[in-house]
Amino acid sequence: MDASSVAARKQPVSWIVQLLEWTTADFTIRLSTGGFTPWGEKIFLARDLTYGALGELPTFEDGIDSQTTRASLTIIPPDQTALAAIADRKHKRSLIQVWDATLDGDTGFLIGEPDLLFRGMIDFPRLVIGETWEVVLECATEEALLNEPNEDRRLSNPFHQSVWPGETGLAYVTGLGRKVYWRANTPAGTGGGGYSSGGGGNNANLS
């Protein structure tokens, strides 16, 4: 954490707030638990007139063993239009970040640099319908992608172009009839298909 921010927290006239930034292809939402908060060229608000306000932030904790960090972030939209826009599943894997910041209680300006609490992506939205409409954004860190099975990833033209659209380097390459699996064991009964690393054989005559 920024040294000046740490020092300011020992003073009676400082506020501790959280800043949230959610970036999608359609919009960028910047919300603050401390009201109007400028940070460089960015402005964080207590309530976005279009998309609403922060409802609840969790206690951010690291994952355990093979689990990665997850977080549930709540946004309270002002109407059904905002609810539909926020809860759209096309925002899956969009970037969301949360910082812990210190404000000067007299000026309302940041002291030092905010400390990054969470950087992740939207996994899926969950609706809570009651006296108010809430959208709970279930989020995971980008490292969670490392735990996904990759049996579908193989050395082939279709997969190559799914990663690099329009790049036809494998379109006319021969010898790709066999599947080469990446970061996954070759399925039983396929007769191999993986490439072995180089380094020479043990039976080579070096004399």
Score class of each variant (00 low, 15 high):
2 D>W: 09
3 A>T: 12
3 A>D: 13
5 S>Q: 03
6 V>K: 12
6 V>G: 09
6 V>D: 13
6 V>N: 13
7 A>F: 10
9 R>Y: 04
12 P>V: 04
12 P>F: 06
13 V>R: 10
16 I>T: 15
17 V>R: 03
19 L>T: 01
19 L>D: 03
21 E>K: 07
21 E>D: 02
22 W>D: 03
24 T>L: 07
25 A>T: 09
27 F>A: 03
28 T>I: 07
30 R>F: 10
32 S>Y: 09
33 T>V: 05
33 T>Q: 01
37 T>K: 02
37 T>M: 06
37 T>A: 08
41 E>K: 11
43 I>T: 11
47 R>Y: 08
47 R>D: 15
48 D>L: 02
48 D>A: 04
52 G>P: 03
52 G>S: 06
53 A>F: 09
54 L>I: 10
57 L>M: 00
58 P>A: 02
58 P>Y: 00
58 P>M: 03
59 T>R: 15
60 F>A: 00
62 D>M: 13
62 D>W: 12
64 I>A: 02
64 I>V: 13
66 S>L: 08
68 T>D: 10
71 A>F: 01
75 I>G: 00
76 I>R: 08
79 D>T: 00
82 A>S: 07
84 A>I: 11
86 I>P: 00
87 A>S: 15
89 R>V: 10
89 R>Y: 07
92 K>Y: 08
95 L>T: 15
96 I>Q: 00
97 Q>R: 14
100 D>K: 05
100 D>H: 08
102 T>Q: 05
103 L>V: 03
106 D>Y: 12
106 D>Q: 15
110 L>P: 01
110 L>C: 01
112 G>S: 03
113 E>C: 08
115 D>N: 12
116 L>W: 14
116 L>M: 15
117 L>P: 01
117 L>V: 13
117 L>Q: 13
118 F>P: 01
119 R>S: 14
119 R>E: 15
124 F>C: 05
126 R>D: 14
126 R>H: 15
126 R>I: 14
131 E>Y: 09
134 E>W: 07
134 E>I: 07
137 L>E: 00
140 A>Y: 09
141 T>G: 09
144 A>H: 07
146 L>T: 05
147 N>E: 14
148 E>W: 10
148 E>K: 07
148 E>D: 11
150 N>A: 15
152 D>G: 13
153 R>F: 15
153 R>M: 12
158 P>E: 12
159 F>N: 09
163 V>K: 01
164 W>L: 09
166 G>F: 04
169 G>A: 09
171 A>N: 06
172 Y>F: 05
173 V>Y: 04
178 R>P: 00
179 K>Q: 11
183 R>H: 10
186 T>R: 04
186 T>F: 01
187 P>Q: 05
187 P>D: 02
187 P>K: 03
188 A>S: 11
190 T>E: 03
190 T>N: 00
194 G>H: 03
195 Y>P: 02
196 S>W: 11
197 S>C: 06
199 G>L: 02
203 N>T: 10
206 L>M: 12
